[in-house]
């Protein structure tokens, strides 16, 4: 016979399970299952016209990622895919740094405004979300192309010669990524700056810190959680971005996302696409792990 205490504990356990189950089911169906399918696909042989040959297992996709099979079937180290990974990583890091550099002053400016003005400005930051990303990227094409608005504008003041040469380059992809992800950096930094007790800054001034010292010693450290959140929100989607390099890179400046799309599309190599996606996934996991460890460390000191 169970004691009343044991019964109560069991009832509570059941209640908890009942509450957790729906979200667990959603995760299982929409996250774990697709990942498992992808993992399976990455270890299969590619079908002749897309799809896979079920039941024919091979690690070929992962070998393909690093090596090329020569005519005599020997493996030769090939850095083509790694190069694209490196470019993606570089562009994502640059985008994140750029967003930090532009986003922090913007967020600081926002946080220092009066409440009324602040709400208007915050609304303006979110205005781009009201238009489809595709439309906005096409607008950038109009701006950046040779003879486009920027080019002809520069021509008017005698600086351009009608051959700006930015569109379909890494620079254009960079501009597009920066533009797309800037709000995701501004908003979290703004949130942490808005919570900041400005009397602390006053106290720093009072103790002889000039504006730069107050920024470095008080405002930046206290805005760090927002900057870390913003970094995660920008870096991860920028790393796997597909649409910006597709449209502004013109298929020349490929990123991982385009490569994956290519394998599932015209290259008819689903296993390689899946393997590439898993490589991207592990990069993202590494970034998250790094961020998580940093945050743990900063909270550890706090306690």
């Amino acid at each position: 016979m169970s004691t009343p205490r044991q019964l109560a504990a069991r009832r509570q356990l059941l209640r908890r399970l009942g509450l957790i189950t729906p979200s667990m089911l959603v995760l299982a169906v929409f996250l774990v299952a697709p990942l498992a399918i992808m993992l399976l696909v990455s270890f299969l042989q590619p079908g002749d016209y897309g799809g896979v040959k079920w039941g024919q297992y091979s690690a070929e996709a992962y070998i393909n990622f690093l090596y090329e099979r020569d005519l005599d079937d020997s493996l030769v180290f090939n850095t083509d895919y790694l190069g694209i990974f490196q470019r993606s990583l570089g562009l994502a890091v640059m985008t994140t740094l750029g967003c930090l550099l532009i986003g922090f002053p913007t967020a600081l400016y926002l946080a220092l405004q009066s409440e009324k003005k602040r709400n208007l400005l915050l609304f303006l930051v979110t205005v781009p979300f009201w238009t489809n990303l595709l439309v906005r990227v096409y607008a950038w094409i109009l701006l950046l192309r040779n003879g486009g608005l920027i080019d002809s504008g520069l021509g008017l003041i005698g600086l351009g010669d009608g051959a700006l040469g930015i569109l379909y380059s890494d620079a254009a992809v960079m501009i597009g990524l920066l533009y797309t992800f800037l709000p995701f950096m501004v908003l979290p930094i703004y949130t942490s700056l808005e919570k900041l007790d400005w009397r602390l800054v006053e106290a720093a001034f009072d103790l002889g810190a000039n504006r730069f010292q107050a920024l470095k010693r008080i405002i930046l450290p206290l805005a760090l959680p927002g900057m870390l959140a913003g970094t995660t929100l920008v870096f991860i989607p920028a790393l796997g971005n597909y649409i910006i390099p597709e449209l502004l890179g013109g298929g020349k400046a490929l990123m991982i996302g385009n490569l994956v799309q290519l394998q599932f599309g015209s290259a008819h190599n689903w296993p390689l696409g899946s393997a590439l996606a898993f490589a991207l996934f592990s990069l993202v996991l590494l970034a998250l792990l790094f961020n998580g460890l940093r945050q743990r460390r900063s909270t550890e000191v706090r306690i």
Partner: peptide
Amino acid sequence: LPPFRRPVNTVFQSYALFPH
């Protein structure tokens, strides 16, 4: 003079100790 140039220090009502 700006506050950081004045030989005057303040004990704030909220103390304003730096939490980090």
